[in-house]
Design a binder for these strands. Structure first.
Lengths: 185, 185
DNA sequence: GCTCACATGTAATCCGTTACATGATTCT
DNA sequence: AGAATCATGTAACGGATTACATGTGAGC
C-alpha cells in the first residue's frame, strides 16, 4: 500500500505512545506544521485507513464521559515508519511563498512600495520565529526528559532559518531605503 | 473578482510583454517555480478566465504555420497586479519539506541512518542550488539589458537560502558522525 | 523516419482546507 | 449562563498535478 507523506506524519506522531486524532492535530500544530501541516479532514479518515491497513490500532479510551479513541503503532506500522525514514527515495520538497512572488515582480511598483513589501515579509518571518521560540521550552523538555533529540534540532533549524530570512530582509530594507533618499525628495 | 495567487503569477509574467501559455510555463520553470510553481493544467484555463475578466487580452499570432495565442496585460490587468503587490494583505506562505519531516522523527532510527538522511537532504539542496546557479546568467542579463532588478535579487536570495541549508546539513553531518565513532565499533 | 521542441488544451484524480454538525466537560 | 476546550467526524469545495489527446516544424 502506498502511503501519503501525511500518513507518515500520523505514524510518526504515534512513535512514542498512543494518541487520539485530536491530540495528533494539536501536536502537529505545535511542531511539524512549519514544514508539514495536517488538518482534521485528513487525520481522522487517514487514521481509519491506517487501521484497515494494519499499521495502527485504535482503542476506545473514554475520559470524563467523553468518547475518545486512541491509536497506537502496530509492529508493521513501526516498520513502515522506519522504512520511510531510511529509504533513500528522493525527498519531496516544495515551497509556496507569496512574499517572494510579489518581490519577484516588484520592478513594476514604486521604490517606497518595494521597501514596504520587504518590511511586510520581514514581519511575517518575525512572527513565525516568535511562534517557534515559544514552543522551544517544550521541545527542550522532550529532549531532556524523553531523550528526543530530533524535534528540538528541527525546531532550532526552523528558528535559524527564520533568522536568516529576517536578516536578509533587514539588509535589503536598508539598501532600498538608501536608494530612496538618493533619488527622492 | 477574486484571483488565486497563481493568476498573479500569470499577470506578472506578462508585465513586460505578451507571452503564450507555453512561454509562461517555461519562464515559470526557470524562475518562480522555486517558490511558486504552475502547470499547463492551471495556466491555459486561467488565461481564458483572465481574458473573460478583462485582465489580459489574447491575440492569435501564428508562427511557422503553428497556431499560437499570445496574451498581454490590459490596463486593469496591470492595475490588479500592482494592487496585489502593494496591498498589505497578509502573505500566504507554506512549506512542505519531506527531509525535515523525516528528520523530525529520526530518533527512531540508527545513528548511521540519521547521518545518511542529512546527507540525502544536503545533496537535494545542492542540486537545487546548482539549478539556480545555472539560471543566474539569464537573470543578470535581464537586469543589465532590461533593468529588471528583482528577478535577480530573488534568485540570489534563493541561492543564499540553499547555501544556508547546505551549511547547516554539513555541520550536522560532522557532529553526528563524531558521535558515531565515539559509541560505534 | 524519428525524435525533440513548440504549442494548446481537457479530464481524471489527488490532496488538502474549510465549513458544518454534534456533543460533552471545564472554566469564568 | 456562556465560552472555551476536548473530541469525532463528514461534505463541499478548491487548487494543483498527471496523463492524455492532438498537431506542426526542425534537426538528425
Amino acid at each position: 500500500m502506498e502511503l501519503s507523506k501525511t500518513s507518515y506524519v500520523i505514524l510518526g506522531m504515534l512513535r512514542t505512545r498512543a494518541h487520539t486524532g485530536y491530540e495528533i492535530k494539536s501536536i502537529v500544530d505545535h511542531s511539524t506544521r512549519f514544514f508539514w501541516a495536517a488538518s482534521y479532514g485528513q487525520i481522522y479518515p487517514e487514521l481509519k485507513r491506517l487501521e484497515e491497513a494494519g499499521l495502527v490500532e485504535g482503542e476506545s479510551v473514554p475520559q470524563d464521559g467523553r468518547r475518545r479513541r486512541a491509536y497506537s503503532l502496530t509492529a508493521s506500522g513501526r516498520e513502515a515508519l522506519e522504512e520511510w525514514i531510511t529509504s533513500g527515495e528522493p525527498l519531496h520538497s516544495e515551497m509556496r511563498h507569496e512574499g517572494l512572488l510579489r518581490f519577484f515582480f516588484a520592478d513594476v511598483v514604486d521604490p517606497d512600495e518595494q521597501v514596504e513589501l520587504v518590511r511586510t515579509m520581514r514581519e511575517m518571518h518575525e512572527r513565525a520565529r516568535d511562534e517557534m521560540q515559544s514552543i522551544r521550552p517544550k521541545a527542550r523538555e522532550a529532549r531532556n526528559e524523553r531523550g528526543q533529540e530530533f524535534p528540538l534540532r528541527t525546531l532550532e533549524f526552523g528558528i535559524a532559518y527564520q533568522d536568516f530570512v529576517i536578516e536578509w530582509c533587514s539588509q535589503l530594507e536598508r539598501e532600498l531605503a538608501g536608494e530612496l533618499t538618493k533619488t527622492g525628495s
